[in-house]
């Protein structure tokens, strides 16, 4: 048991370290901007006094290392800084930069909740669906069903998310007005209505993720069914059901957990485009909007959140598959 604890502790430490380095990379990337934020905010016609004022307000007169640690310290406490768009506005309005503004954290919080909701709905549909289909394709491999599924999933994987999104809009929103094509979600909305408006983006993501997940599940199960111990179980005269449930499933857990976690990590990328198509007020849309207006603190914060989620999911996959490995659970 001890060895498992050690391994997991190692993985956790490694994940934390990766996150730290990633934060440095993001910070360094942002600091590669020409000029500095102050000039960026004020534009070219700025007076030197205004630039200096903003610079000291934002702490830009500090050396980069000090600024990194200030930023990191802030992030630890949930303070992601103030958005430039807001700062810019404030400046023109003649107000003090730090007073009466919504911070990046305040901007992100509700949208983060929305994105999580979208991801959860997607996962709730996609995970059971793709696992079932994947297992079926593996069991009936090389049958007509398997071949059609193969072509279908390949097509779905290869299509850009916005193509799938528009096809779904076409069929489920425009031609048959069952679901709204725009997902305007606001606070205090009922769960049912919220779900209905989230359904179309969720279905789009489901199409993308299911294809991946199903193919990976199929490959994992086929690989498993080829093991000699499955043949042995068959040669012991066990029923097909028992072979699957008792001999295949316990060993399939690790690869399946891996597949699910990896694909949820993949969702993170998909969410950006899909949220833009459906104007879904999530973190992905905020990210893209901020990229367009070069609102650096928001971009930086979103990037960090996406990376953290991605690392966390991969880490979870890693740890769960360690836990489900009998060789590690029962050391010699």
């Amino acid at each position: 048991m001890n060895s498992v604890v050690t391994i997991i502790a190692q993985r956790l430490a490694l994940g934390l370290l990766t996150l730290l380095i990633v934060s440095i990379v993001i910070f360094a990337a942002v600091n590669m901007l020409p000029g500095d934020f102050a000039e960026l905010i004020l534009g070219q016609g700025a007076t030197p006094e205004a630039v200096t004022a903003i610079r000291s307000d934002l702490g830009l007169d500090q050396p980069p290392v000090a600024r990194y640690f200030t930023w990191l310290g802030g992030v630890m406490q949930g303070d992601l800084g103030n958005s430039f768009a807001q700062a810019n506005f404030a400046n023109f309005a003649g107000a003090d930069v730090n007073s009466g503004l919504t911070s990046v954290a305040d901007q992100i919080r509700p949208r983060f909740a929305n994105t999580m909701f979208l991801a959860l709905v997607t996962a709730a549909i996609a995970v059971p669906l793709s696992l079932t289909l994947g297992v079926l394709a593996a069991l009936f491999r090389n049958s007509l069903f398997d071949r059609i599924a193969n072509v279908g999933t390949l097509t779905s994987i290869s299509s850009p998310e916005f193509f799938l999104a528009y096809v779904l809009i076409l069929f489920l929103a425009v031609l048959n007005p069952w679901l709204p094509s725009l997902s305007n979600i606001y606070d205090g909305m009922g769960f049912g209505e919220r779900l209905q408006r989230t359904l179309l983006p969720a279905l789009t993501l489901t199409l993308v993720v299911t294809a991946h997940m199903m193919r990976m599940t199929r490959a994992a199960i086929i690989n498993l069914l080829a093991s000699p111990y499955i043949e042995m179980a068959r040669l012991k005269g066990l029923s097909p059901m028992r072979v699957i449930l008792r001999h295949a499933l316990p060993n399939a857990l690790a690869p399946i957990i891996n597949v699910v976690a990896l694909n949820l990590a993949y969702l993170i990328t998909g969410v950006v485009v899909v949220e833009v198509v459906f104007v879904y007020p999530g973190i992905g849309q905020l990210f893209v909007d901020s990229v367009k207006i070069r609102d650096i603190p928001v971009v930086q914060a979103c990037c960090l959140i996406f990376a953290a989620a991605y690392i966390l999911l991969n880490l979870t996959a890693d740890i769960l598959s360690i836990l489900s490995n009998p060789r590690l659970r029962h050391p010699k």
Binding site: T18, L19, I21, V22, V25, I26, A29, V30, M32, L33, A265, I268, T269, V272, V273, F287, V288, S290, V291, R294, I296, V299, Q300, C302, C303, F306, A307, Y310, I311, N314
Partner: peptide, 17 residues
Amino acid sequence: VLMAIPSLIFALLLMTI
């Protein structure tokens, strides 16, 4: 480290810069 950041997100960040 580079792979720990989702590629589209990273691309968007760098494209901003």
